[in-house]
Write a protein that binds this DNA or RNA. Structure first.
Lengths: 224, 224
DNA sequence: GTTATAAATGAACGCCATTCATTTACTGGT
DNA sequence: ACCAGTAAATGAATGGCGTTCATTTATAAC
């Protein structure tokens, strides 16, 4: 018969309430766990209960470290901002640096579109890594001879394009299939059919490139 | 004392279950009520319960006419697409028509940013009025000598910019105030301070204009 | 007339974010 | 060495949400 001493279980013994020897949770751990949860279950799977469960903790415990679920989303988006590639500012010519930054920015957030409504509107003071990204980009623009009073406007415009394009990446392939209404919109249907299928390039990438190059060209002309 | 016959009450007598003389609800009525609700209480106030209440109906009654709340949002966004000004295509030069379309598009959706994640990803077959908008724009591009195989890409890029800019409109004024971290981001802080305060123009409008003009110029060069 | 159906009701469900009283172990002051 | 205060956990409870479903009934169709 089995020994009376309980075997170490996959389910850990239920922790008693009260202050533990060392804190189990912190914002970094919560952020990491949230990212893992998102990559396995998507944003629908990101609930406070699931997050707590993945950390081996009761849901209410999270609220000792974040004020709300929105707070978790802010932590996430600031973490992602640090993953955006700004390294080309300072090492590459301005236009190439913008190109790399924008593609990278779009790619990072296209996997995290539910954060876009938050980052687009969040005061930078609440997001230090995002702020650091802006600092690098701003310095790159200034060093490239950009007039200082237009730098922020240019960045805002580029960002708007990037966010919109990030959504576009997630659109289904047949988004432009008009179905039974096709006959009623002949010009549109024709244009969709002619959409050049460049090899190895998604339509969303072609559109992003087209817009980005126009913005880079247009803004490049502002440099002194 | 009051007569036994009940006076006509502000609260209507509770309707019995069963088929009414004429249908109370339809998709148009739901859409209109939803718009009113949003304009008075905002998108947080748009719940199925509140929507039903504003129509004098039980929440479950809505589900005879829409499959889900997302369905309501789709109705809303298609309704809004019809409000976007495409009238300049065909009457004005191409660049001016794009300008009017884009500004109008941005203005309409800046009041309805919660719909952006939906419209950005919804197949056009589910949104006839949106499709009609695309038809007008596509025809305008074609008539302006735009190469047919780039029309969709150009529209997608413009739309991405418009959606991102719509979010930007809703950002708080102090979004770029770095607060206590200002010293750590000197270039950024300086650029924010120099942000030219053009009279009568919001910074968000300045940025939109900057980006839009760059896109129009860049895309205009593609015309044959 | 009978039958079928569309369109309403209201009760119930499950999920979710959040709050709160409570417990407990560590920390700093005397 | 004690004591008080506090940080960090528990788990039960709450209220709101979208949605489902059995039921009812007026109208339309045969």
């Amino acid at each position: 018969m089995p020994a009376p001493t309980p075997a170490p279980s996959a389910v850990p013994a239920r922790r008693r309430a009260g202050r533990p020897t060392a804190a189990i949770l912190d914002q970094d751990g919560i952020t990491t766990a949230a990212l893992e949860l998102i990559s396995s279950k998507g944003y629908e799977g990101l609930t406070m209960a699931a997050l707590a469960r993945s950390l081996g903790v009761a849901p209410s415990a999270l609220y000792n470290h974040v004020a709300s679920k929105d707070d978790v989303l802010i932590l996430l988006m600031d973490h992602l901002a640090a993953m955006v590639d700004v390294s080309a500012f300072g090492t590459e010519p301005w236009d190439e640096a913008v190109r790399r930054w924008a593609w990278s920015y779009r790619d990072v957030f296209s996997e995290h579109t539910p954060l876009i409504p938050i980052i687009a509107v969040l005061p930078v003071a609440n997001a230090p890594k995002t702020l650091a990204m802006y600092e690098s980009v701003t310095a790159g623009f200034r060093d490239a001879g950009f007039p200082e009073d237009r730098i922020i406007s240019a960045i805002v415009a580029l960002e708007a394009f990037v966010f919109g394009a990030a959504y576009d990446v997630t659109a289904p392939e047949d988004i432009f299939d008009a179905g039974s209404l096709a006959e009623q919109v002949p010009n549109f249907t024709a244009a969709v059919e002619r959409l050049a299928l460049e090899r190895h390039k998604r339509p969303t990438d072609v559109a992003f490139r087209l817009g980005l190059e126009a913005l880079i060209t247009g803004f490049g002309a502002l440099r002194g």
